[in-house]
Design a protein around this nucleic acid. Structure first.
Length: 793
DNA sequence: CAGTGAGCGAGCTTCCGCTTGACTT
């Protein structure tokens, strides 16, 4: 039995620390927070000065009882959770829940997991900082009030099961507003002029010089006029300017920058990055992956230095301390770095290897020398014109950190590969090979990717490293936002080319605006956002979090009582909730597009019970309205009258087969033919608008043929077991439950008895569906319920 | 697996941050 019990948050951390501390210390983990506000109801006692009603969370009952037992056996208890608001609260909850005593409890903190740091912490204990704890309670209670009062407003006014919150609602707002910017964007064009000059270099070799005119022309007339003038112009090198430049390495990774770089360089989703990083962390290969700090421990800096020296030499070393600039950063940990800098690669999956390598390179590079560059510009005069052509080149004089790592950017647009320029002298005359004026357009703003949304949230100080990935999932699970691709649009552009004294004028076509894996708002997302921003502008404002953070800082400093702060907020907020509940309309996002030319009735779009729909006529009219669902790629916000009218061309009658009508329509699962109560999906190659009766008959007969071959045999007295051919191979079914047939058994030889045997071996067959991979509390409850029923048996 | 857009009006849903499992398909 150990004399000392140390409690930290993470089991991986506990394992490491235990090694440093020796036999007198037992190190256990709390697995994060152990208590939270009661789940049922709001969990706050409004009658009693906002007293929080804490309960031990169901998944922490076991941990808490183990900790309780261990704490009774120990002589001294060391609460070693992180030194930030949440960490302090964890320590306090432990103190309360484990019923610890002041005289044998100590609070210790360290920012890096090194032996030195931990021993130092043990020597300098303190008490729990109750003001910091109060700041956390205020944060927790505020989030609960906002979330649990706003969400029911949405259930009533928009749709059940929706949610709103301080973080997620602002995240959705960013995406909705970006989409509007894109929709409203009007591209402007101008003419960019490039020239290629021919010359002879010092060695007498022919060389080409690629240049761009410093001036862009706003229209074709000006561009043409310039080219006309160039026909008779002379071109002379005016000057050659060489300037030194340098590039510095980026700081080591935080959660947010790791997510961004892993997305750009490795194509990982935000959640994927965190999963892979978690595995590396648990294996002891990297430091903690949820951090907002760019700080490295002395140990890490020193080992980096040694590593760089042996790898590349002393002159590549340049150690640095980076400062965290992020709003609201709490810096309880180090930056994300390899645990052992001298380990360059790790064993594991491809993903783990790649992510580790990225972390290693970024860490090492951050302690390396600046890259030194030489930028050269050649300025070329044009006779009779005030403008100049410029050729730019860049040469790396000393690679420095670039030897290892270069940070990526989001817009990998036309980053022209600037390189070495040919050696030339000023005064030299040049002959133009060709001069091209090309029409260029201003770019639409880019939609957010998961990672760029995280960067934006971090910039606004909204959310924490531990919540970036879950927030991205939440707004997608609530169907406010969808991840998707955008096909490129074709766009014509004009190219004017001067060769010799001849100008050609051509129209070319380019693809533009293609986007992959970006976040799009849904109609529901737009309606919810517009509703919330109208009625709750303060909560939805981009600086709401920053403002409440200031308030929390006052509480942490002991200047404000946390309940007073909450009271001030609640007294203002709650009446708005009540008023909105009572006085606002139901939100369906209706837009009137115009009039149906056939019936003369109004055509509108809105959100219906089953999603976005278009409607001809109104409910008030005597004649019932006609409805049609919007397609997946259409939205209420941007659909045109023309496209909406197109929707009403289906369902379409195709003629008859066996005296029954065939109709073609588009359903939830795509286009289908309906005939005699049966459904036949259309292959992707058939267009429901174009399909003929003959083709429809073909599809129906093909499906019937397949059906015929489906049944392999019926077993049992009344055929209660059927052996069938399915999409994934043969299987059998009994009382609507499907069972697998193990490999190696010929389905045709199955007997009734053998099937009963196979059924007994698959007790869980049919007991799935439902959850659909979502981590909801509901899903957790059903699995828990399953376990208990099993136990009873 | 499937074509709805209305209506009886039960009882349910929801937040943000801290941490890891335990599950199939």
């Amino acid at each position: 039995m150990s004399k000392n019990l140390v409690i930290v948050e993470s089991p991986a951390k506990a394992k490491t620390i235990e090694k440093f501390l020796g036999n007198d210390y037992r190190v256990m983990s709390s697995f994060g927070h152990i208590r939270d506000l009661a789940e049922k109801g709001i969990g706050i006692d409004f009658e009693n000065n906002y007293q929080p009603q804490y309960i031990v969370t169901s998944d922490k009952k076991k941990v808490v009882s183990e900790l309780k037992k261990a704490s009774k056996e120990a002589e001294m208890i060391w609460l070693a959770s992180d030194e930030d608001r949440e960490g302090e609260a964890i320590a306090w909850h432990l103190y309360e829940e484990l019923k610890l005593k002041k005289d044998n409890t100590k609070r210790i903190v360290f920012h890096e997991i090194t032996k030195e740091a931990i021993l130092h912490a043990i020597e300098t204990p303190r008490e729990i900082d109750i003001h910091l704890v109060d700041a956390q309670q205020a944060r927790r209670v505020l989030d609960r009030i906002v979330g649990f009062e706003l969400s029911p407003v949405l259930w009533r006014k928009v749709r059940p099961s929706l949610s709103a919150g301080r973080v997620q609602s602002v995240a959705v707002r960013l995406i909705v507003e970006r989409e509007r910017e894109i929709n409203q964007f009007i591209p402007e064009s101008s003419y960019k002029v490039n020239a290629i000059f021919k010359s002879i270099d010092i060695k007498g070799q022919p060389v080409e010089l690629k240049t761009e005119l410093q001036q862009r022309f706003s229209n074709k007339t000006e561009a043409l006029a310039f080219l006309e003038k160039c026909k008779n112009s002379g071109f002379t090198i005016d000057s050659i300017v060489t300037k030194p430049a340098k590039k510095s390495p980026a700081p080591p990774f935080t959660t947010s920058t790791l997510q961004q770089e892993a997305a750009r360089k490795l194509g990982f989703s935000v959640a994927q990055t965190m999963q892979v990083a978690q595995r590396l962390y648990e294996a002891g290969k990297i430091t903690y992956m949820r951090t907002d700090s760019v700080n490295l421990s002395d140990l890490a800096i020193n080992t980096s230095k040694a590593e760089i020296t042996s790898m590349a030499g002393q002159k590549y070393v340049h150690t640095r301390r980076f400062n965290t600039k992020t709003k609201g950063a709490q810096e309880a940990h180090e930056a994300i770095r390899p645990s052992y800098i001298n380990v360059h690669t790790v064993e594991g999956t491809t993903q783990e290897k790649k992510l580790y390598e990225l972390i290693w390179k970024r860490t090492i590079a951050s302690q390396m020398a600046d890259a030194e560059l030489e930028k050269t510009s050649i300025y070329i005069n044009i006779s009779d014109s005030p403008y100049q052509f410029i050729a730019s080149g860049e040469v790396i004089v000393f690679d420095g950190f670039l030897k290892v790592y270069l940070e990526s950017t989001d817009d990998e647009s036309d980053a022209e590969n600037e390189s070495l320029l040919p050696a030339m002298k000023s005064g030299e005359k040049l002959i133009p090979g060709e001069i091209v004026a090309q029409q260029r357009f201003t770019q639409k703003p880019a939609r957010y990717s998961e990672a760029s949304l995280v960067r934006k949230l971090e910039e606004l100080g909204i959310g924490r490293p531990s919540t970036y990935a879950p927030t991205i999932s939440t707004i997608q699970n609530r169907t406010y936002v969808e991840k998707g691709d955008r096909q490129a649009d074709k766009r014509d552009y004009n190219v004017l080319k001067l060769i010799g004294d001849k100008i050609t004028d051509k129209i070319k076509t380019e693809n533009t605006g293609a986007e992959k894996s970006k976040l799009f708002p849904t109609d529901i997302g737009i309606v919810v956002n517009d509703f919330l921003t109208e009625y709750f502008p303060e909560i939805l404002s981009f600086d709401f979090t920053a403002n409440v953070e200031k308030e929390f800082d006052h509480i942490a400093d002991g200047k404000t009582q946390w309940t007073k702060s909450i009271d001030k907020f609640y007294k203002k907020f709650h009446p708005i909730v009540e008023d909105t509940m009572k006085n606002s309309e139901r939100q369906v996002g209706e837009r009137i597009l115009g009039v149906d030319p056939v019936s003369g009735r109004q055509l509108s779009v809105k959100i219906g019970k089953f999603g976005p729909l278009a409607q001809i006529g109104t409910a008030e009219e005597e004649e019932k309205p006609v409805f049609a669902s919007l397609r997946r790629d259409q939205s209420i916000e941007s659909i045109t009258l023309e496209d909406a009218l197109e929707l009403f061309k289906l369902p379409r009658q195709l003629g008859e087969l066996e005296e029954k009508v065939m109709t073609v329509a588009i359903g939830r699962f795509g286009p289908y033919i309906r005939h005699d109560g049966s459904f036949y999906s259309l292959p992707k190659t058939d267009d429901p608008m174009e399909i003929t009766a003959e083709r429809a008959v073909e599809i129906i007969e093909a499906k019937r043929e397949e059906e015929k071959n489906r049944l392999i045999c019926s077993l049992g007295e009344n055929g209660e077991i059927q052996v069938l051919n399915g999409r994934f191979g043969p299987y059998f079914t009994c009382e609507k439950v499907n069972y697998k047939i193990p490999k190696g058994i010929d389905p045709a030889t199955l007997t009734f008895e053998k099937c009963r045997e196979l059924m007994a071996a698959q007790p869980d067959a049919g007991a799935k569906k439902k959850g659909f991979g979502r981590k909801t509390t509901a899903a957790k409850k059903t699995t828990a319920a399953k376990k208990t029923t099993k136990a009873k048996k």
